[in-house]
């Protein structure tokens, strides 16, 4: 099991996974009717997109067989799933924050998002987290409104001067 995990981290493993995904994607494209539709200059609509995927597949295959195939990229050597899952959570939380921010307003939602984000990344004092979050919110707000870009006012609409 450990040997499989080691192999997956090397360039050959990366190339193999990429190749499998790309073959499946190429089959999907070939089965899509729009790909074979001809346009007025004689090319099919899917010619260039398929060319891009074929190139990706060829170079992924090269990764499996070339002289660097046994090398493990340095950052992948130390990769573990637990912190990565935390990273995915940050992306999801950012989307949730963004959705709430559009309704509630930038100045309301951002301090909450930043407070939890700062705390999650290791600053273990809620007071410092909250103060930093408020200061940072005002910096971002000032930077964007200063440039004439309006940020969602949300429930503060009509109250804010900008």
């Amino acid at each position: 099991m450990k040997r499989h995990s080691e192999w997956l981290r090397c360039n050959q493993g990366i190339g193999s996974v990429l190749s499998l995904v790309l073959i499946a994607f190429l089959v999907y494209l070939e089965l899509s009717p729009w790909v074979h539709r001809r346009v007025r200059d004689g090319f099919t609509l899917g010619f260039f997109p398929v060319l891009g995927v074929v190139l990706l597949l060829v170079f992924s295959f090269v990764l499996i067989v070339d002289t660097h195939r046994r090398e493990v990229p340095p950052d992948l050597r130390t990769f573990t799933f637990k912190p990565f899952a935390g990273g995915i959570l940050i992306l999801i939380a950012t989307w949730v924050y963004f959705t709430i921010m559009r309704k509630a307003g930038f100045l309301i939602a951002t301090p909450f998002y930043l407070t939890f984000f700062i705390y999650a990344l290791g600053l273990r004092s809620w007071r410092k987290c909250i103060i930093s979050a408020i200061v940072m919110t005002l910096i971002v707000y000032g930077a964007f409104t200063g440039m004439g870009i309006k940020l969602p006012a949300g429930i503060l609409w009509g109250i804010l001067p900008f």
Binding site: N11, V39, L45, G52, L55, F59, S60, L63, D66, H68
Partner: peptide, 25 residues
């Protein structure tokens, strides 16, 4: 250092650039 990886990246750029309207039709 690794040519194949540079080419994978370039090919991904080609693929992403083809998403959207066809330049002729």
């Amino acid at each position: 250092k690794h040519l194949a990886k540079g080419l994978i990246s370039a090919a991904l750029g080609v693929f992403l650039a083809t998403i959207g309207p066809d330049p002729v039709s």
